[in-house]
Design a protein around this nucleic acid. Structure first.
Lengths: 231, 231
DNA sequence: ATGTTTATTATGTCTACACATAAGGAGTCG
DNA sequence: CGACTCCTTATGTGTAGACATAATAAACAT
């Protein structure tokens, strides 16, 4: 079948030559035209192949300077961040959601500073649990800006989780995600089964829409949780 | 002189329409031909723009089904993982490296299992510190497979860090990266200034080359460290 | 020797066109 | 009604050619 060579095949061969072949770290590759000729493809296709390999982090490309193999190849890691439900159901486990607490209050100072809220802005504070096969998997601590999203005050989050509700309700224009290690507080001890002070892997995500704060969420994970990616 | 519209401009407009405009979550976009006509570009360019926006995680594309706005837009997070030296020097701080300990031993059982080593394989065990302006920033705990890399036994790591040495010496074909929260052990207490049991943000990276284990490294960070990314 | 201009060159990107491929949907048949 | 086939359609990808742009290197002037 493969009469024409695809850019994917070219990519595979390029990566092969980088990882196991003659193109060691730091070495300079031949130019696009020369490579295109060697592989029997058009320069367009060769360009696509080289661009994609470069996006994978293997190559460094600069006009005039040429294409060079990166010294430190793994400069970026992509992490899939599925919705909890999907992450749990993918493992074959059964997903269950539970609302722990819900309150509408005036935003505390630290939250105002963190999310650039105005004084006296009201927020909805939610605490929820996500279970995998009945075992607590993730504790969600979420703040929603009620000034920007008045609907959030009416919304009853006992059935549908705030994440799924938000995602279907409001767009976003700015996102900030952090990974960090925290010490288990009383709430985590109560719901996730940690001992007080245990290290907990947390993801914090802040979202804005047109400069207005939408939501801040901290996701605390069960003990021993790892976020892993492979190449 | 922007006589011709670039795919980047098209991308920006598309993202605008998704995040703040008429194309809400779940909505179906017009076909490539129609959009190309509207924007006054070729289908090739429109395809490139849509493909890249889709790679950013905003769109879902399927043949025949068309292009649809993702319900959960932030499905993947990209984290830059620079070499420590670069990460530190980027902040303007001065970088310093120090070798703490070095030993050549037979691989312990847990390491053999973790890295698929053969029985009685020897490994080089290194502990190193990376300082930013004289303050300990990262503690590196590294194992190098001496059977696959005999040069590592000869190498004196007192001046140049093992990471920089490895990167310039050996290629790789398989990488596994994990993020996790661990409790500070004695070594971290001694070198990073934690209290025993404090939560520590760790990165673990395992590397193979042609199915042979190359190295396993755990990078423990100073207290309060966060890995952050923004959109 | 040093700073400035100019040419060269490799990558970046747009266009127009053609064919490939996956998958939804209509129509057909048991 | 269900299962199958076939057609249609939107995206996926390859080609050839042209111009744009950044960055190095060479030539030049100070």
């Amino acid at each position: 079948m493969a009469e024409t060579t695809t850019f994917r095949e070219v990519m595979a061969e390029i990566i092969q030559r980088i990882t196991e072949g003659p193109w060691g770290p730091g070495s300079l590759l031949p130019g696009e035209v020369e490579l295109a000729e060697e592989f029997g493809v058009s320069r367009t296709t060769m360009n696509r192949a080289l661009r994609e390999v470069s996006e994978l982090g293997f190559l460094d490309r600069k006009r005039k300077a040429g294409t060079r193999v990166r010294m430190a190849p793994i400069r970026q890691a992509r992490f899939e961040m599925p919705v909890v439900r999907a992450e749990i159901e993918k493992t074959g486990a059964q997903y269950r959601y539970q609302l722990v607490s819900r309150a509408v209050i005036v935003a505390p100072d630290w939250l105002r500073a963190r999310m650039r809220l105005k004084a006296r802005d009201k927020v909805v504070h939610l605490v929820c649990l996500h279970f995998a096969d009945g075992v607590a998997f993730q504790l969600e601590d979420r703040w929603i800006n009620a000034s920007a999203l008045p609907q959030a005050v009416e919304q009853d989050f006992s059935a549908v989780g705030p994440n799924e509700w938000l995602v279907a309700t409001v767009p976003f224009s700015e996102v900030e995600i952090s990974f960090l290690a925290a010490a288990a507080d009383a709430r985590m001890v109560a719901h996730l089964g940690h001992a007080p002070g245990d290290p907990v892997f947390c993801i914090e995500r802040a979202t804005w829409w047109q400069n207005a704060a939408v939501t801040l969420v901290t996701l605390a994970h069960r003990q021993g949780y790892r976020m892993t990616t492979r190449y």
